[in-house]
């Protein structure tokens, strides 16, 4: 049974519809990538899944719960987390404080979880007291991912995790995404330039003009010439 099911969702901003009749599924412990050109509705889909936009039509099910009418803070409690593409950290807080905010709803002691995050991202462990606003783009992306993992989510949504990073840093981030996945977390990634992301994904969806175009395993999508030309830059 899928962990997340998006069923024929139509959504957008105000009167403007961006997504039309989009359906996707994510199974437990899977990595799924959504690719598509700029303006295809990838970020809109993420925001709709996470309750920042309300779908006009359709259903979103997460672990048996209908979540399309829930607010983001309720969805967080059900075990989903979201890392926006930009402004995804609290810059005036320290690394440790950012992680504490990720565990805001936990009233028990979560220092073990903080240490697990520092094991997963050793760079952060050495700089727990540093203000995040003064860190590099790659480090901020790690803080953002660690913050999202604080509540042991079953699924995390990553919006263009490598977008603003230099290629060598992007490799590091993708290695960490695989490491996160190996701890049992399902991951939904949105990427514009997505060869790297597809290569480590179990499955992928191609979105264009707000509609489903293709879906297949990551490998097959990479091997598909038409998709390669249209969406992966040849």
């Amino acid at each position: 049974m899928p962990l997340l099911t998006v069923k024929q969702v139509t959504s957008g901003y105000g009167d403007m519809e961006v997504l039309h009749d989009v359906s996707i599924e994510i199974n437990p412990q899977e990595i799924v990538t959504i690719i598509g050109p700029n303006g295809a509705g990838k970020s809109t889909l993420m925001k709709t899944i996470f309750g920042l936009l309300k779908p006009k039509v359709g259903q979103i099910l997460f672990t048996d719960h209908e979540i399309s009418s829930l607010s983001p803070d309720r969805i967080v409690r059900l075990g989903m987390a979201y890392v926006p593409q930009v402004e995804n950290v609290f810059p005036s807080l320290t690394v440790r404080e950012n992680l504490e905010m990720g565990a805001f709803i936990r009233s028990d002691d979560f220092s073990d979880r903080v240490n697990e995050m520092f094991d997963l991202f050793p760079v952060l462990g050495r700089r727990g007291r540093q203000q995040v606003g003064k860190m590099s783009g790659g480090e901020r992306q790690m803080v953002a991912m660690a913050r999202a993992l604080m509540l042991n989510p079953q699924l995390i949504l990553l919006d263009e995790p490598s977008a603003a990073l230099a290629p060598n840093l992007a490799v590091v981030i993708f290695e960490q995404i695989v490491a996160i996945n190996e701890t049992g977390v399902a991951i939904l990634i949105v990427e514009q330039n997505a060869k790297q992301s597809l290569s480590l994904s179990d499955r992928g969806y191609v979105l264009a003009s707000g509609r489903n175009r293709f879906t297949d395993t990551g490998e097959s999508l990479l091997a598909n010439e038409e998709i390669g030309q249209l969406y992966l830059g040849g």
Partner: peptide, 19 residues
């Protein structure tokens, strides 16, 4: 800390699960 976080970025605070 949550107040400072929300001053930094209110939308992110909500997304993070801060009440």
């Amino acid at each position: 800390k949550a107040m400072r976080a929300m001053a930094d970025n209110a939308t992110l605070a909500q997304v993070t699960g801060i009440n």
